[in-house]
Design a protein around this nucleic acid. Structure first.
Lengths: 118, 118
DNA sequence: CAAAGACATAGACATACGTAAATATTTACA
DNA sequence: TGTAAATATTTACGTATGTCTATGTCTTTG
């Protein structure tokens, strides 16, 4: 289990003190921005919310597609972005793919944004 | 739960239950995404962090400009985006302009992202 | 093995974004 | 009043983003 020196996006949000506590370094900011970027889209916000609030904490792509007026590849593209950012886990079971929200990543991010000053 | 006709970006984050509690509506997601978009840039993350963590909770643009290797108009542009999103308050005192972080907006956003499920 | 269904990838296109250079605006002060 | 300093606005430009259509991959089942 060799770990690379690079931080995955998920780990990035656990890197540092809250925004209001001390100034983010350049590299810290560059690690966190992709996480926020992944969330900063209405479709992706709804997708992650649907997955996170779904029965069992996971949802099948088949369920998600129908909730939007967008093409299937577009939804797939957004899910990929959330997955690559480390906000959604992906598991294939038979023909279906299930996504699950990484709540600890979301909570790290929330702590970073909303954490109180020293 | 009734909502006003127009939400300012700041209010948007206080609109609804946490992501993981119930699916965001389309309009809720469209209200929140701009807030995250404003944060989803390394320069703006560092700017808001510098302001929020600065002595007195506010910082002068003159202090901020020097911390970056970017042109003054570029910093001004980023500050404008954070201000228009409702994340930074702006006050002119003499020749200088001071920005102050809206911590309640940040905390609303954090609660939305990191709030636990039902 | 072939066909169908679920999901992902590739390519293309219009729009949005981050940045810089040049210029404008506002304020203080000699 | 005029000059300098602090900040904002305008314009321009390359790159990134969101979306679609078309196609590919994988899995199940007839």
């Amino acid at each position: 289990m060799s770990m690379s020196l690079e931080l995955t996006p998920v780990q990035a949000a656990a890197c540092c003190a809250p925004l209001a506590r001390q100034p983010l370094s350049e590299s810290e900011a560059e690690g966190i921005a992709p996480l926020l970027k992944a969330l900063a889209d209405p479709v992706r916000l709804r997708l992650i919310s649907m997955v996170a609030s779904h029965q069992g904490g996971e949802a099948c792509v088949c369920d998600l597609n129908d909730a939007f007026d967008l093409s299937q590849p577009t939804i797939s593209h957004h899910l990929k972005i959330l997955h690559e950012a480390g906000l959604l886990d992906r598991e294939k079971r038979g023909v279906w793919v299930y996504y699950r929200a990484r709540t600890e990543a979301l909570q790290n991010l929330a702590a970073l944004i909303g954490g109180h000053a020293a």
